[in-house]
Computed example of a mutant assay.
Amino acid sequence: MTESVALRRRRARFRTDGKGWIFVGPFLAVFALTFLAPIAYAIYLSLFRDQAFFGGTVFVGLDNYADVLRDAKFWESFLRVLAFLVVQVPVMLVLALLAALAIDSARLHGSSFFRIVIFLPYAVPGVVAVLMWGFIYGNNFGLAADLNELLGTTAVQPLSQRWMLPSIANIVTWEFVGYNMLIFYSALRTVPGELYEAAAIDGAGTFRTIRAVKLPALRGAIVIATIFSIIGSFQLFNEPNILRTLAPNVITTYYTPNMYAYNLSFAGQQFNYSATVAIVMGLITAVIAYIVQLRGSREAL
């Protein structure tokens, strides 16, 4: 009798869970087709190589991955975006944090206006933003050329070899400060008012309130924004790819890993090696993002 009751309960639980699959199923199907299937196909491509003289493809196992690890162009592009990440991401997040704290402060008049103004660049399409800044950076036209003509010098060269990466960093910072500011500001709005009242009773000033109340509340948001920024830095493509038309001698076809994979595939017709570069870069990005998330979670505890 007991076994019969237990069996009926298991069947009822299965029927209940089965109804959930009806709702989850469409999402899983789309997820598998748009995310898992392309990854699986890229992994499949990375295991083969085109035969130069005989035509067709041949299975090479992990040889393509070994070639990527020995590829000087890949590591040059990777180290470039790594340097970009180390400098640009902290600057961008600090600016976004300061903007969020200022807007959240009751002392800033017109906070809604400033919130919209700071967020507005994120609403500009990325291609349009790069084209706009490209005209500003131009050596023969735009603001940079006008400044050089006014000063009678050629010191302002945003598209030169020395200043290209900072120029790209400036564009990315301009685009995404507002996005990260909104993440931080949303986290600040969830802080209970009782904490501010307790800090005021304890005699805490503005900076002490920020350090003791607001920054701890922002820890999770900072981790999320950092992870998003790391992923975005390793995916750097639009800005250098568009600016390449203005500075072809400075921005190479392998200026970033994404540009390298793109040009290998669409210009060099090396689909197998391009897929390998993309997978290796994806694995590196995932590992670094996971380490940041793990470290941030431990500090939160």
Rank of each mutant, 00 (worst) to 15 (best):
D104W: 02
P166Q: 11
L243P: 12
T245P: 07
D146I: 09
V130W: 00
Y273G: 04
I288G: 01
F35T: 14
T57N: 13
K19L: 05
A198V: 14
R107N: 07
L47F: 07
A200S: 08
L69Y: 13
P125K: 05
I118V: 13
I231W: 10
V292H: 07
A144G: 06
A72Q: 14
P240G: 12
Q88M: 15
N263Q: 09
T209V: 10
Y179N: 06
V156Q: 00
A72P: 14
E239Q: 13
F234W: 06
T154N: 06
L301K: 02
L95R: 07
Y255I: 04
A96L: 15
K214S: 13
Y273R: 00
A72R: 14
A29V: 15
L69C: 08
F84K: 11
V127G: 10
D67N: 14
F23W: 07
V213Q: 06
F14Y: 06
F48P: 13
R211N: 15
A102Q: 11
L301M: 03
E239K: 09
W75Y: 13
A199V: 00
P90I: 13
I183D: 02
V156H: 01
P26W: 14
S46H: 08
W21E: 03
A6V: 04
G55L: 11
S186N: 10
P121Q: 04
M132V: 08
F228A: 13
G126C: 02
A204H: 11
L236C: 05
Y260V: 02
R295M: 00
R107F: 11
I222P: 03
I227Y: 04
P158R: 01
F59D: 09
L246T: 12
V81Q: 14
F84Q: 11
D17P: 01
D67I: 15
P240L: 14
S274L: 12
T276A: 13
F35S: 07
V191K: 03
G142S: 10
R189I: 09
Y196S: 08
A187W: 01
V91E: 14
Y260P: 01
L108P: 02
I224D: 07
Q161T: 01
I251S: 02
R298L: 08
A221S: 11
F27V: 06
L188N: 07
R9G: 00
V60G: 14
A200P: 00
P38Y: 04
R298G: 05
R244T: 06
G152R: 03
G138Y: 02
F14L: 07
I242W: 09
I279D: 06
T253Y: 12
A261R: 01
N263A: 04
L165F: 00
R162C: 00
G110Y: 12
T245D: 13
A217P: 15
L108A: 05
L150A: 11
L283N: 02
T245G: 09
L62H: 06
I183Q: 02
A123G: 01
V223L: 15
V87F: 15
F228M: 15
F48Y: 15
R13P: 00
F27G: 03
K73L: 15
N148V: 08
L215E: 14
P240E: 13
Y44A: 14
W163E: 07
S4F: 00
R189D: 08
F266C: 07
V89T: 15
E175W: 10
A144R: 03
W163T: 03
N263E: 13
L150Y: 08
I242T: 09
L120N: 05
A123V: 01
T245C: 06
E175P: 00
E3R: 02
E149I: 06
L82Q: 13
A32M: 10
T276E: 02
R10Y: 01
E175G: 01
